[in-house]
Design a protein around this nucleic acid. Sequence first.
DNA 1: GTCTATATTTGGATAGAC
DNA 2: GTCTATCCAAATATAGAC
Lengths: 201, 201
Amino acid sequence: MARPESISDEDLLSRLAPVFRARGYEGASLAELSEASGLAKAALYHRFPDGKLAMARAVLAAAERQMAADALAPAPPRASPAERLHAMADGLLRFYDGGRRTCLVDVFSVAGTPDAVRANVRSGAARWIAGIADLLVEAGIDPAEARRRGEDAVIRIEGALVLSRALNDTAPFERVAKTFAADLLRPAAAVHPSKKETSDD
Amino acid sequence: MARPESISDEDLLSRLAPVFRARGYEGASLAELSEASGLAKAALYHRFPDGKLAMARAVLAAAERQMAADALAPAPPRASPAERLHAMADGLLRFYDGGRRTCLVDVFSVAGTPDAVRANVRSGAARWIAGIADLLVEAGIDPAEARRRGEDAVIRIEGALVLSRALNDTAPFERVAKTFAADLLRPAAAVHPSKKETSDD
DNA sequence: GTCTATATTTGGATAGAC
DNA sequence: GTCTATCCAAATATAGAC
């Protein structure tokens, strides 16, 4: 260990990620990324010749992989949809550190983030919704309704993360995680038998 | 009209707001704020001696006032809660331009935004939730449940705005707005009679 | 009250030694 | 493959004329 071992790509990304998560693309400065990673700026450019843009894309891709492993497929594929949804809720709690972590879908979708990154966010969010919807279809839910509920799931997750961050209180995210599975598997649309919003446009 | 009329505070804030909304606190540069407002940087400092911090706080306060007028109290106070909630949904659609506008609660709550601004976001979000909850209590809903639903409402709004922005598609926000009133007035908790998440902590 | 011009710091990105 | 030292552009903020 005379010469400092070159840090692995995986470790490197896990140290860069919190900076992008917390500060967003524009807010994440090379100075901060350098300090968090323990590498000098020039070393970061050696690993990522395209600079901050490449770092952000790599961090986003790693987050997608981790999300797929931790939240979309943590339970055995032969488990029941309900069990898999409960496992997904647990995975989300871990992945977002109980609501303390920001979601990259949120911070990387703001204007000022390079289009290449925003395009990745867009496709990643779409895959996320589709993954949840597929699971709900397996649970016997109509595909169109499953798609809606997949969107609802992502909406609740993102919204709860925003609110928990704004209030500096993890309670909203924890509550959403707790009712996550039941909300997605609720019987049918026993929701709007009211008079106004079912008819038009 | 020889000398260019001094722009009113209200007009000025309405021109600065879109920059902060789109770019966040750190992303909103004085160059951009200057161009959007039509005032030179030095003139902005004359209006806001504390600089960007003061601009952001003023924009946030103005947004809160507009939100109160457009979304929290657009219908006459003697209207039924259901009517007022439908009016609120319409107000939200206008306020957020159908889902194209970012919410300051989202972009101003990220790290890097000065604490003074974040504190204002926090209290503003709390008042927002309380305002919706008060309306639901008037509708005969139990106060604790009304508080939860007020949080849910804000969660859905914020989440739908994030998703619409990430997908570059206003559909998620429009859908949330459409079911907004009915979701908040739904009968009771016919939601989690399942086996796992009702018992512990 | 607004302008042009500038001071100062920090940003992303590179050069070249080791 | 990592470092120190540096470049240049853009950031916030201010000085001083009008």
